[in-house]
Computed example of a mutant assay.
Amino acid sequence: MAEFVLVAGAWLGAWAWDEVVPELRAAGHGAHPLTLSGVAERRSEPVGPQTHVQDIVSEVERRDLHGVVLVGHSYSGIPVGQAAERIGGRLARAVFVDSNVPAHGESFVSPWPEQGARVEADIAANGGFWPLPDTAELDDQGLSAEQLARFTRGATPHPGASLTDPAVLERPLGELPATYIKCLLDGPAPNPDVVELLKSDRWRLVEMNTGHWPMLSRPRELARILLEAAEA
């Protein structure tokens, strides 16, 4: 039995996995959606260096999970990638869902100086939080009107400190057993750093013909892919 720890990207809490979790549990596995500090029902909690990494590690240790499949979506690929090496032998596989991946000493914003500067300016102008995206940015991501409404109802501003926090890795990320899920409506190919990681024989690529939030747009298909990843 696998134990899935599911971490959604910026602005989203554990609720984003509501339609994925039952599919995983019905297949006989554990499923543990996690809200990170500073968002959703935990939005009052402070966020500093490595807070989100520790959130994930603490969840695994608190539940004494083994055979762990750590799933990181979008921004959360960065803390998930760091947590994956810190939980050691508890890890079975990491799954990155259309996500960023950590690089030692680099933050979420640092790979894209111009875009990162805009994000940092937005954070400074919004009390230390990254504001929600304009709904027009979600229009081409395969979300129905109902799914888009769920996003806007549940999303909360994201703590900016987590986006500028440099990652800490002790070994190459390519050494982890990992699956990368590329959502094609968000771009036809992974970012160059992911392309490089996919050269490792421990990484595999899976494509989904949907947008950046597949847990909302294609939850059953995503669950099936996660189940297959757990068996890889």
Rank of each mutant, 00 (worst) to 15 (best):
V101N: 10
E61N: 14
P22V: 13
L198A: 12
T35I: 09
E59W: 05
F108V: 13
S144L: 01
P33S: 09
R93D: 05
L184F: 10
G105Q: 05
D98L: 13
V69F: 04
R43Q: 14
D201F: 10
I78T: 00
W17D: 01
W130I: 05
P33Y: 08
T135I: 08
L226Q: 02
V109C: 12
G48I: 04
R204A: 07
V21A: 13
R218M: 15
V71L: 01
H73F: 08
R204P: 00
A84E: 02
V194M: 08
H29V: 11
L70I: 06
A94C: 11
L169A: 13
W213K: 02
P177H: 09
L173H: 09
R118E: 15
G211L: 10
L176M: 12
G30M: 09
Q147K: 10
R153A: 12
V168S: 13
P22S: 11
E207N: 15
A149T: 13
T179S: 10
N100Y: 12
L197R: 01
D165C: 14
G154E: 06
W112E: 14
L12T: 01
D201R: 14
H73T: 04
D122W: 10
D201I: 07
H104N: 15
V47F: 00
A26E: 12
T164N: 07
P113E: 05
L138Y: 11
M1A: 13
D55S: 06
I225Y: 00
D64Q: 15
N191E: 14
S162R: 06
V168T: 13
V60R: 03
G28Y: 11
H158E: 12
R93C: 02
I225T: 03
L6H: 04
S99C: 10
M208C: 14
P219F: 01
V39I: 15
E170Y: 08
V206F: 00
G13V: 05
E61V: 11
V109Q: 04
W11K: 01
L12E: 05
E196S: 13
G67L: 07
N100L: 11
D140W: 12
L176C: 12
V47L: 01
E221P: 05
R218Q: 15
R224M: 07
V5T: 04
G142K: 04
Q50S: 08
S144M: 03
I181C: 08
V5R: 00
F151I: 09
M1L: 10
L216P: 01
L197N: 02
Y180E: 05
L198E: 11
K182S: 14
L12A: 06
N100K: 10
A117E: 14
A92D: 06
S37L: 06
A40H: 04
S74I: 09
R204L: 07
I78Y: 00
I225N: 00
H29I: 07
P131Q: 11
